[in-house]
Design a protein around this nucleic acid. Structure first.
Lengths: 149, 149
DNA sequence: CTAAAGATGATACACTATCTCATATGAAGT
DNA sequence: ACTTCATATGAGATAGTGTATCATCTTTAG
Protein backbone atom coordinates (compact mmCIF):
# COMPACT_ATOMS: atom_id res chain seq x y z
CA UNK A 1 0.00 0.00 0.00
CA UNK A 2 1.42 3.29 -1.08
CA UNK A 3 1.92 6.01 1.46
CA UNK A 4 -0.62 8.19 -0.25
CA UNK A 5 -3.38 5.60 -0.06
CA UNK A 6 -4.27 6.27 3.55
CA UNK A 7 -4.67 9.92 2.73
CA UNK A 8 -6.83 9.05 -0.24
CA UNK A 9 -9.06 6.84 1.81
CA UNK A 10 -9.33 9.50 4.47
CA UNK A 11 -10.40 11.93 1.79
CA UNK A 12 -13.07 9.56 0.58
CA UNK A 13 -14.21 9.07 4.12
CA UNK A 14 -14.62 12.81 4.54
CA UNK A 15 -16.57 12.97 1.32
CA UNK A 16 -18.84 10.23 2.60
CA UNK A 17 -19.34 11.90 5.98
CA UNK A 18 -20.11 15.21 4.36
CA UNK A 19 -22.70 13.60 2.16
CA UNK A 20 -24.35 11.82 5.06
CA UNK A 21 -24.46 15.01 7.10
CA UNK A 22 -26.08 16.87 4.25
CA UNK A 23 -28.82 14.28 4.08
CA UNK A 24 -29.19 14.13 7.86
CA UNK A 25 -27.92 10.55 7.99
CA UNK A 26 -25.60 8.96 10.51
CA UNK A 27 -22.27 7.30 10.01
CA UNK A 28 -23.28 4.02 11.61
CA UNK A 29 -21.36 0.82 12.11
CA UNK A 30 -23.04 -0.77 9.14
CA UNK A 31 -22.15 2.06 6.83
CA UNK A 32 -18.58 2.05 8.07
CA UNK A 33 -18.26 -1.64 7.35
CA UNK A 34 -19.56 -1.20 3.83
CA UNK A 35 -17.27 1.76 3.31
CA UNK A 36 -14.25 -0.27 4.43
CA UNK A 37 -15.11 -3.33 2.39
CA UNK A 38 -15.66 -1.20 -0.68
CA UNK A 39 -12.33 0.53 -0.21
CA UNK A 40 -10.57 -2.79 0.09
CA UNK A 41 -12.41 -4.43 -2.78
CA UNK A 42 -9.93 -4.99 -5.55
CA UNK A 43 -11.01 -2.50 -8.16
CA UNK A 44 -14.40 -3.43 -9.49
CA UNK A 45 -17.16 -5.11 -7.60
CA UNK A 46 -20.77 -6.14 -7.90
CA UNK A 47 -23.11 -5.72 -4.93
CA UNK A 48 -23.57 -9.46 -4.50
CA UNK A 49 -19.81 -9.93 -4.45
CA UNK A 50 -19.65 -7.41 -1.65
CA UNK A 51 -22.34 -9.30 0.23
CA UNK A 52 -20.24 -12.46 -0.02
CA UNK A 53 -17.08 -10.60 0.89
CA UNK A 54 -18.69 -9.17 4.01
CA UNK A 55 -19.98 -12.58 4.94
CA UNK A 56 -16.57 -14.20 4.52
CA UNK A 57 -14.90 -11.50 6.59
CA UNK A 58 -17.45 -12.10 9.34
CA UNK A 59 -18.79 -8.58 9.10
CA UNK A 60 -22.29 -8.48 10.44
CA UNK A 61 -24.25 -6.45 7.92
CA UNK A 62 -27.39 -7.43 6.13
CA UNK A 63 -27.78 -7.48 2.41
CA UNK A 64 -30.28 -4.64 2.70
CA UNK A 65 -27.81 -2.39 4.49
CA UNK A 66 -25.10 -3.19 1.99
CA UNK A 67 -27.30 -2.24 -0.93
CA UNK A 68 -28.46 0.88 0.85
CA UNK A 69 -24.95 1.96 1.74
CA UNK A 70 -23.72 1.35 -1.78
CA UNK A 71 -26.32 3.81 -2.99
CA UNK A 72 -25.16 6.38 -0.48
CA UNK A 73 -21.56 5.88 -1.57
CA UNK A 74 -22.68 6.39 -5.11
CA UNK A 75 -24.48 9.61 -4.28
CA UNK A 76 -21.49 10.77 -2.28
CA UNK A 77 -19.28 10.32 -5.30
CA UNK A 78 -17.04 7.77 -3.60
CA UNK A 79 -17.83 5.06 -6.12
CA UNK A 80 -19.25 5.08 -9.60
CA UNK A 81 -21.14 2.72 -11.81
CA UNK A 82 -19.23 0.96 -14.51
CA UNK A 83 -22.05 -0.84 -16.26
CA UNK A 84 -20.98 -2.97 -19.15
CA UNK A 85 -24.03 -4.78 -20.40
CA UNK A 86 -24.00 -7.21 -17.50
CA UNK A 87 -27.20 -8.28 -15.86
CA UNK A 88 -26.14 -6.83 -12.53
CA UNK A 89 -24.77 -3.55 -11.33
CA UNK A 90 -21.08 -2.97 -11.30
CA UNK A 91 -19.09 -0.37 -9.40
CA UNK A 92 -15.59 0.77 -8.77
CA UNK A 93 -14.18 3.12 -6.19
CA UNK A 94 -12.72 6.35 -7.42
CA UNK A 95 -9.96 7.04 -4.92
CA UNK A 96 -6.45 6.28 -6.05
CA UNK A 97 -7.60 5.92 -9.62
CA UNK A 98 -6.73 8.06 -12.55
CA UNK A 99 -9.40 8.76 -15.15
CA UNK A 100 -9.61 5.63 -17.24
CA UNK A 101 -11.91 3.54 -19.36
CA UNK A 102 -12.53 -0.15 -19.86
CA UNK A 103 -12.17 -2.69 -22.60
CA UNK A 104 -14.00 -5.95 -22.14
CA UNK A 105 -13.23 -9.29 -23.70
CA UNK A 106 -16.32 -10.74 -25.33
CA UNK A 107 -14.89 -14.22 -24.94
CA UNK A 108 -13.76 -14.53 -21.35
CA UNK A 109 -15.43 -11.49 -19.83
CA UNK A 110 -12.24 -10.03 -18.42
CA UNK A 111 -11.50 -6.37 -18.87
CA UNK A 112 -8.49 -4.16 -19.12
CA UNK A 113 -8.23 -0.52 -18.23
CA UNK A 114 -6.68 2.23 -20.25
CA UNK A 115 -6.18 5.89 -19.51
CA UNK A 116 -8.54 8.64 -20.56
CA UNK A 117 -6.65 10.44 -23.26
CA UNK A 118 -9.00 13.40 -23.16
CA UNK A 119 -10.06 13.25 -26.79
CA UNK A 120 -13.64 12.78 -25.74
CA UNK A 121 -13.78 16.39 -24.68
CA UNK A 122 -14.35 17.18 -28.31
CA UNK A 123 -17.87 15.94 -27.72
CA UNK A 124 -18.60 18.29 -24.89
CA UNK A 125 -19.12 21.46 -26.95
CA UNK A 126 -21.43 19.53 -29.21
CA UNK A 127 -23.57 18.37 -26.33
CA UNK A 128 -23.60 21.75 -24.67
CA UNK A 129 -24.80 23.31 -27.87
CA UNK A 130 -27.73 20.91 -27.59
CA UNK A 131 -28.41 22.21 -24.11
CA UNK A 132 -27.10 19.09 -22.43
CA UNK A 133 -25.07 19.73 -19.29
CA UNK A 134 -22.31 17.13 -19.18
CA UNK A 135 -21.42 15.62 -15.83
CA UNK A 136 -19.31 12.69 -16.91
CA UNK A 137 -18.75 10.01 -19.46
CA UNK A 138 -17.47 6.50 -20.01
CA UNK A 139 -15.98 4.74 -22.96
CA UNK A 140 -16.56 1.05 -23.43
CA UNK A 141 -14.48 -0.89 -25.85
CA UNK A 142 -15.14 -4.51 -26.51
CA UNK A 143 -13.22 -7.12 -28.41
CA UNK A 144 -10.92 -10.06 -27.78
CA UNK A 145 -8.19 -9.94 -25.19
CA UNK A 146 -4.63 -11.11 -25.65
CA UNK A 147 -5.18 -14.49 -23.98
CA UNK A 148 -8.30 -15.40 -25.93
CA UNK A 149 -6.96 -14.82 -29.40
CA UNK B 1 -40.62 6.36 -43.96
CA UNK B 2 -37.82 7.20 -46.33
CA UNK B 3 -37.52 5.38 -49.62
CA UNK B 4 -34.28 3.80 -48.54
CA UNK B 5 -35.75 2.26 -45.41
CA UNK B 6 -37.34 -0.66 -47.15
CA UNK B 7 -34.02 -1.52 -48.72
CA UNK B 8 -32.35 -1.24 -45.36
CA UNK B 9 -34.85 -3.51 -43.71
CA UNK B 10 -34.50 -6.00 -46.52
CA UNK B 11 -30.78 -5.95 -45.95
CA UNK B 12 -31.20 -6.64 -42.28
CA UNK B 13 -33.59 -9.42 -43.10
CA UNK B 14 -30.99 -11.03 -45.33
CA UNK B 15 -28.43 -10.70 -42.59
CA UNK B 16 -30.82 -12.42 -40.21
CA UNK B 17 -31.62 -15.22 -42.65
CA UNK B 18 -27.97 -15.80 -43.36
CA UNK B 19 -27.24 -16.08 -39.66
CA UNK B 20 -30.09 -18.52 -39.08
CA UNK B 21 -29.00 -20.66 -41.98
CA UNK B 22 -25.46 -20.78 -40.68
CA UNK B 23 -26.74 -22.06 -37.36
CA UNK B 24 -29.16 -24.48 -38.99
CA UNK B 25 -32.18 -22.60 -37.66
CA UNK B 26 -35.43 -21.83 -39.43
CA UNK B 27 -37.05 -18.51 -40.19
CA UNK B 28 -40.29 -19.27 -38.43
CA UNK B 29 -43.40 -17.16 -37.93
CA UNK B 30 -42.36 -16.31 -34.39
CA UNK B 31 -38.95 -15.10 -35.47
CA UNK B 32 -40.48 -13.05 -38.27
CA UNK B 33 -42.82 -11.36 -35.87
CA UNK B 34 -40.01 -10.47 -33.52
CA UNK B 35 -37.92 -9.24 -36.42
CA UNK B 36 -40.75 -7.00 -37.62
CA UNK B 37 -41.55 -5.62 -34.21
CA UNK B 38 -37.91 -4.87 -33.56
CA UNK B 39 -37.58 -3.10 -36.87
CA UNK B 40 -40.62 -0.99 -36.10
CA UNK B 41 -39.66 -0.28 -32.52
CA UNK B 42 -38.83 3.37 -32.25
CA UNK B 43 -35.09 3.34 -31.80
CA UNK B 44 -34.24 1.78 -28.47
CA UNK B 45 -36.14 -0.95 -26.75
CA UNK B 46 -35.98 -3.25 -23.77
CA UNK B 47 -37.07 -6.87 -24.14
CA UNK B 48 -40.02 -6.44 -21.83
CA UNK B 49 -41.18 -3.45 -23.84
CA UNK B 50 -41.12 -5.62 -26.90
CA UNK B 51 -43.18 -8.24 -25.11
CA UNK B 52 -45.81 -5.60 -24.34
CA UNK B 53 -45.63 -4.20 -27.86
CA UNK B 54 -46.24 -7.65 -29.35
CA UNK B 55 -49.12 -8.20 -27.00
CA UNK B 56 -50.73 -4.87 -27.87
CA UNK B 57 -50.35 -5.55 -31.57
CA UNK B 58 -52.07 -8.91 -31.10
CA UNK B 59 -49.02 -10.80 -32.27
CA UNK B 60 -49.09 -14.30 -30.89
CA UNK B 61 -45.59 -14.95 -29.63
CA UNK B 62 -44.55 -16.06 -26.21
CA UNK B 63 -42.14 -14.19 -24.02
CA UNK B 64 -39.70 -17.07 -24.35
CA UNK B 65 -39.64 -16.85 -28.13
CA UNK B 66 -39.20 -13.10 -27.99
CA UNK B 67 -36.19 -13.39 -25.73
CA UNK B 68 -34.75 -16.18 -27.83
CA UNK B 69 -35.23 -14.29 -31.07
CA UNK B 70 -33.69 -11.15 -29.64
CA UNK B 71 -30.57 -13.14 -28.91
CA UNK B 72 -30.46 -14.42 -32.46
CA UNK B 73 -30.89 -10.89 -33.78
CA UNK B 74 -28.03 -9.86 -31.58
CA UNK B 75 -25.79 -12.63 -32.84
CA UNK B 76 -26.80 -11.82 -36.40
CA UNK B 77 -25.65 -8.24 -35.92
CA UNK B 78 -29.08 -6.80 -36.62
CA UNK B 79 -29.34 -5.17 -33.21
CA UNK B 80 -26.84 -4.24 -30.57
CA UNK B 81 -26.83 -3.76 -26.86
CA UNK B 82 -26.82 -0.23 -25.58
CA UNK B 83 -26.49 -0.85 -21.87
CA UNK B 84 -26.52 2.25 -19.78
CA UNK B 85 -26.47 1.16 -16.18
CA UNK B 86 -30.11 0.13 -16.24
CA UNK B 87 -31.24 -3.00 -14.52
CA UNK B 88 -32.49 -4.50 -17.73
CA UNK B 89 -31.05 -5.06 -21.15
CA UNK B 90 -31.40 -2.41 -23.76
CA UNK B 91 -31.05 -2.72 -27.51
CA UNK B 92 -31.33 -0.72 -30.66
CA UNK B 93 -31.51 -1.80 -34.25
CA UNK B 94 -28.60 -0.87 -36.43
CA UNK B 95 -30.22 -0.40 -39.84
CA UNK B 96 -30.77 3.15 -40.93
CA UNK B 97 -28.53 4.43 -38.16
CA UNK B 98 -25.27 6.24 -38.47
CA UNK B 99 -22.55 5.56 -35.92
CA UNK B 100 -23.58 7.48 -32.85
CA UNK B 101 -23.38 7.55 -29.09
CA UNK B 102 -25.73 8.35 -26.26
CA UNK B 103 -26.06 10.92 -23.54
CA UNK B 104 -28.43 10.13 -20.75
CA UNK B 105 -30.17 12.55 -18.42
CA UNK B 106 -29.62 11.56 -14.82
CA UNK B 107 -32.81 13.34 -13.84
CA UNK B 108 -35.51 12.14 -16.22
CA UNK B 109 -33.78 9.15 -17.79
CA UNK B 110 -34.20 10.37 -21.34
CA UNK B 111 -31.32 10.21 -23.73
CA UNK B 112 -30.09 12.06 -26.76
CA UNK B 113 -27.93 10.75 -29.53
CA UNK B 114 -24.91 12.40 -31.06
CA UNK B 115 -22.71 11.35 -33.93
CA UNK B 116 -19.48 9.44 -33.56
CA UNK B 117 -16.86 12.02 -34.40
CA UNK B 118 -14.17 9.39 -34.75
CA UNK B 119 -11.84 10.79 -32.12
CA UNK B 120 -12.08 7.56 -30.18
CA UNK B 121 -9.95 5.86 -32.79
CA UNK B 122 -7.00 7.36 -31.02
CA UNK B 123 -7.52 4.65 -28.44
CA UNK B 124 -7.33 1.80 -30.87
CA UNK B 125 -3.56 1.78 -31.35
CA UNK B 126 -3.13 1.87 -27.61
CA UNK B 127 -5.35 -1.15 -27.09
CA UNK B 128 -3.79 -3.05 -29.95
CA UNK B 129 -0.37 -2.48 -28.48
CA UNK B 130 -1.74 -4.24 -25.39
CA UNK B 131 -2.74 -7.17 -27.56
CA UNK B 132 -6.43 -6.33 -27.39
CA UNK B 133 -8.31 -6.82 -30.64
CA UNK B 134 -10.95 -4.09 -30.85
CA UNK B 135 -14.33 -5.01 -32.25
CA UNK B 136 -16.36 -1.99 -31.24
CA UNK B 137 -16.94 0.68 -28.68
CA UNK B 138 -19.55 2.90 -27.10
CA UNK B 139 -19.39 6.26 -25.42
CA UNK B 140 -21.78 7.08 -22.65
CA UNK B 141 -22.21 10.62 -21.52
CA UNK B 142 -24.43 11.48 -18.63
CA UNK B 143 -25.64 14.75 -17.25
CA UNK B 144 -28.74 16.92 -17.26
CA UNK B 145 -30.82 17.41 -20.36
CA UNK B 146 -32.19 20.70 -21.61
CA UNK B 147 -35.66 20.21 -20.15
CA UNK B 148 -34.49 19.24 -16.67
CA UNK B 149 -32.21 22.18 -16.02
C1' DC C 1 -46.21 -40.68 -44.89
C1' DT C 2 -42.88 -41.09 -41.55
C1' DA C 3 -39.00 -39.93 -38.86
C1' DA C 4 -36.00 -36.68 -37.01
C1' DA C 5 -34.65 -32.13 -36.04
C1' DG C 6 -36.04 -28.06 -34.51
C1' DA C 7 -39.41 -24.47 -32.43
C1' DT C 8 -42.82 -23.09 -29.31
C1' DG C 9 -45.31 -21.91 -25.04
C1' DA C 10 -46.38 -22.51 -20.26
C1' DT C 11 -44.32 -22.79 -16.32
C1' DA C 12 -40.77 -23.19 -13.02
C1' DC C 13 -36.60 -21.30 -11.62
C1' DA C 14 -32.63 -18.25 -10.52
C1' DC C 15 -30.89 -13.98 -9.58
C1' DT C 16 -30.67 -9.20 -8.42
C1' DA C 17 -32.41 -5.49 -6.16
C1' DT C 18 -35.98 -3.10 -3.56
C1' DC C 19 -39.70 -2.63 -0.12
C1' DT C 20 -41.99 -3.39 4.32
C1' DC C 21 -42.25 -3.25 8.93
C1' DA C 22 -41.19 -4.54 13.52
C1' DT C 23 -37.33 -3.83 16.31
C1' DA C 24 -32.94 -1.65 17.51
C1' DT C 25 -29.90 2.16 17.85
C1' DG C 26 -28.06 6.72 18.43
C1' DA C 27 -28.28 11.78 19.45
C1' DA C 28 -30.19 15.47 21.91
C1' DG C 29 -32.46 17.35 25.52
C1' DT C 30 -33.94 16.98 30.45
C1' DA D 1 -28.44 8.48 33.30
C1' DC D 2 -33.27 8.58 31.32
C1' DT D 3 -36.51 9.67 27.84
C1' DT D 4 -37.85 10.75 23.42
C1' DC D 5 -37.81 10.63 18.70
C1' DA D 6 -35.82 10.42 14.35
C1' DT D 7 -33.18 7.30 11.97
C1' DA D 8 -31.11 2.57 10.91
C1' DT D 9 -31.27 -2.23 10.67
C1' DG D 10 -32.40 -7.08 9.48
C1' DA D 11 -35.45 -10.68 7.94
C1' DG D 12 -38.34 -11.77 4.86
C1' DA D 13 -41.65 -10.57 1.28
C1' DT D 14 -41.94 -8.78 -3.19
C1' DA D 15 -40.92 -7.19 -7.88
C1' DG D 16 -38.67 -7.53 -12.19
C1' DT D 17 -35.90 -9.60 -15.61
C1' DG D 18 -34.11 -13.21 -17.93
C1' DT D 19 -33.13 -18.40 -18.49
C1' DA D 20 -34.08 -23.48 -18.28
C1' DT D 21 -37.14 -27.32 -18.74
C1' DC D 22 -40.09 -30.19 -21.08
C1' DA D 23 -44.13 -31.77 -23.31
C1' DT D 24 -46.27 -30.65 -27.51
C1' DC D 25 -46.41 -28.92 -32.14
C1' DT D 26 -44.25 -27.89 -36.80
C1' DT D 27 -41.24 -28.27 -40.51
C1' DT D 28 -38.12 -30.61 -43.45
C1' DA D 29 -35.99 -34.42 -45.59
C1' DG D 30 -36.27 -38.82 -47.33
Amino acid sequence: MKSTDRMDIKNERLKFERHLKEKGLRLTTGRQIVFDEVMHAHGHFAPEELVKQCHQNKRRVSRATIYRSINELLEAGVIRKTAFGEKHQHFEHIYDEKPHHHAKCLHCGSYIEFPDLGEDKVYKPYLEKEGFQVIGHEMHFYGICRKCQ
